[in-house]
Nucleic acid binder design. Structure first.
Length: 573
RNA sequence: GGCCCCAUCGUCUAGUCUGGUCCAGGACGCCAGGUUCUCAUCCUGGAAACUGGGGUUCGAAUCCCCAUGGGGUCACCA
């Protein structure tokens, strides 16, 4: 192993049991930024010691989520992303999947057992659970009672070697442990608080605590940045480091991100939202039995019944409910935000502000809060991480995303919206490129996310005879007598259409069309609204659409004229 | 419940370490106006907070103590 003495190495160590959680994304971002700021390495390690819940797909998904956010790792499993390779093993510290490091862990565990610093214990999970329940019932704090230590050492080892099912427990230290944390300061844990926790499970896999400590040491991790929910784990890790003779890395625990109501942001929130929507639907429609729902959602009836009864929080059911009943589920995982049409740069900016702040002013005296990953890589520091937990305010994220969308060049916005549409709304791509570009620009200030953009764009995606003319709009805008003796909307429309017919396709652009309308209005002595609104009703069926020039142009000359003709033919009077 | 952490507008926060420049600044949201062909964008203005109580000090959002509140964590999950 080659190592540079002062090389800063941070790591992000997700367990591959699902998509990347937004909170995990922030942890990864801070680890990445800290490494960049100090010209160090950011390492990605996959903690797959929970055999039942881990999967390779999940690991890959997490890597893609990170890459999408622009968080690249210098060391770790490799990923091909947009033509380049992320990851690698420049210091020879692989493997990066814990399941492939079992031999390493066992070496250290054997050493601890030989030294009497750890010992086998033979209780079954059921026995321990019973003891735990008894302690709770007696209002006592449960700690492992060291029953295994009453077995003579020789016999313990003999039974262990004979293959009797056992776990290995660390002999907890008898002294106080002080954890120095870069954001919280010294955190003290009194002697005797810690019990002899398990470091190797009966299935032979190390527990999280043990694997983390071994890996952080053998991978040369110098700085551990993680969420505060891990703070209480840290004394265990320090105890382990001392027993093993390892150094202690620098710790920095960052505040937790929670929902607006203070509850923890979790994947279960999606199930909760779906369940509420389902309950609502079932109340309104008595025919929606679990059996009927199974049909409707094309899922197993038992799964659905259990979901309703809160027996499970199946993400499949939640997703199906969202789709079929057209309800929005809260975004929790990075993939949710991507699907909803958020920009990675907006997400990065927003989550960076959840618990960190540059503390800088703009020239106009306002606080600096808009920045990108490059800025973070230059300015991120531990001492500006806050201590208070942060609530995830979607309204503010939406505002950030809207600003990020506004900051894009028209070409960039069109290209990126197109890429999103290709995945989530392919029908939009049926438009010819020039009209797509016009539509994109028209829709941009009306969209806070890519998905949002679909709504104001809808008029351009329906067939020319595929929409109805809103009755109230027709009455008010087309048929009502004009103000101040002006002609009715319908007559103005008919009149202006003559002008429109004379405009060649080559001039059919938003600016030119707007200019023609302005001229027409001047000639007729009417306000722009008196022409634009009737036109809008004819073109879209409603009184709401982008600017009239853009609306006409996004439709294209043929389509626009066809729509007006249909309106004129349909609405008479 | 034990242990641990935290405490500035509804929310994210600046200010706290190095007490006075803070009758507390910014942003989102909200409210009210304005621009505009609708919707939206955009512009202007407004309401809105130092959890409470004790200290220390000439002086406390800033330092100390207590109370209260919130959160985390107590697995052969990570």
């Amino acid at each position: 192993m080659t190592s540079t003495p002062d090389l800063v190495v941070t790591r992000f160590a997700p367990s591959p049991t699902g998509h990347l959680h937004i909170g995990g994304a922030r942890t990864a971002l801070f680890c990445w930024a800290f490494a960049r700021r100090h010209n160090g390495h950011f390492l990605l390690r996959i903690e797959d010691t929970d055999q039942a819940r881990s999967s390779d797909e999940a690991a890959r998904g997490i890597m893609e989520d990170l890459a999408w956010l622009g968080i690249d790792w210098d060391e770790g499993p490799t990923l091909q992303y947009q033509g380049r390779t992320i990851g690698g093993d420049p210091r020879s510290v692989a493997p990066f999947f814990q399941a492939r490091r079992i031999d390493i862990y066992n070496d250290y565990i054997n050493r601890l057992v030989e030294q009497g610093k750890a010992y086998p214990a033979f209780e079954t999970p059921e026995e321990l659970e019973a003891k735990r329940k008894a302690a709770v019932a007696a209002k006592q704090t449960y700690r492992y009672d060291r029953a295994a230590l009453s077995i003579p050492p020789d016999e313990r080892i003999r039974r262990m070697k004979a293959g009797e099912p056992h776990v290995i427990r660390l002999m907890a230290p008898a002294e106080e442990i002080v954890v120095h944390d870069e954001v919280l300061g010294d955190v003290r844990y009194a002697a005797g608080e810690m019990d002899d926790f398990v470091i190797r499970k009966a299935d032979g896999f190390p527990t999280y605590h043990f694997a983390v400590v071994i890996d952080d040491q053998t991978m040369g991790i110098t700085h551990v940045l993680r969420a505060q929910e891990h703070l209480n784990n840290t004394p265990r890790h320090v105890a382990l480091q001392r027993a093993l003779g390892f150094r202690t890395p620098v710790y920095a625990h960052m505040p937790i991100i929670s929902n607006m109501d203070g509850s923890k942001m979790s994947k279960r929130d999606k199930a909760k939202a779906a369940r509420a929507a389902l309950a609502d639907a079932m109340k309104k429609d008595a025919s929606l039995t679990p059996a009927a729902l199974a049909e409707k959602l094309s899922l197993d009836e038992k799964l659905i019944a259990d979901f309703i009864a809160k027996e499970n929080d199946s993400l499949d059911v939640a997703a199906a409910v969202a789709r079929v009943f057209n309800v929005a589920l809260p975004e929790i995982e990075v993939a949710d935000f991507r699907d909803a049409g958020y920009l990675p740069e907006a997400i990065v900016n927003f989550i960076a502000l959840l618990g960190w702040n540059p503390g800088m002013k703009l020239p106009d005296g306002k606080d600096l809060e808009k920045f990108d990953a490059r800025f973070l890589a230059e300015h991120f520091s531990l001492d500006r991480i806050g201590k208070t937990s942060a609530k995830f305010d979607r309204a503010k994220l939406l505002a950030f995303n809207q600003d990020a969308i506004a900051a894009l060049s028209p070409e960039d916005f069109a290209a990126r919206w197109r890429a999103w549409c290709a995945e989530h709304a392919p029908e939009v791509l049926n438009l010819p490129p020039d009209r797509f570009a016009i539509l994109a620009e028209a829709v941009r200030p009306r969209a806070r996310t890519f998905r949002d953009a679909l709504k104001p764009a809808a008029f351009a995606l329906t067939p020319d005879d595929g929409y109805a003319f809103d009755e109230a709009a027709v009455k008010k805008v087309l048929l009502a007598p004009g103000k101040d003796n002006a002609p009715r909307g319908l007559d103005l429309l008919r009149d202006f259409t003559t002008t429109l017919r004379d405009i060649p396709a080559t001039d059919w652009t938003p600016a030119t069309l707007d200019a023609h309308m302005a001229t027409f209005c001047q000639q007729k002595g009417v306000g722009p609204g008196q022409v634009a609104q009737p036109l809008r009703v004819a073109l879209t069926g409603s009184t709401v659409s982008p600017g009239i020039g853009a609306t006409l142009a996004a439709l294209g000359r043929d389509s626009a004229l066809r729509r007006i003709d249909r309106c004129l033919a349909t609405i008479s009077g």
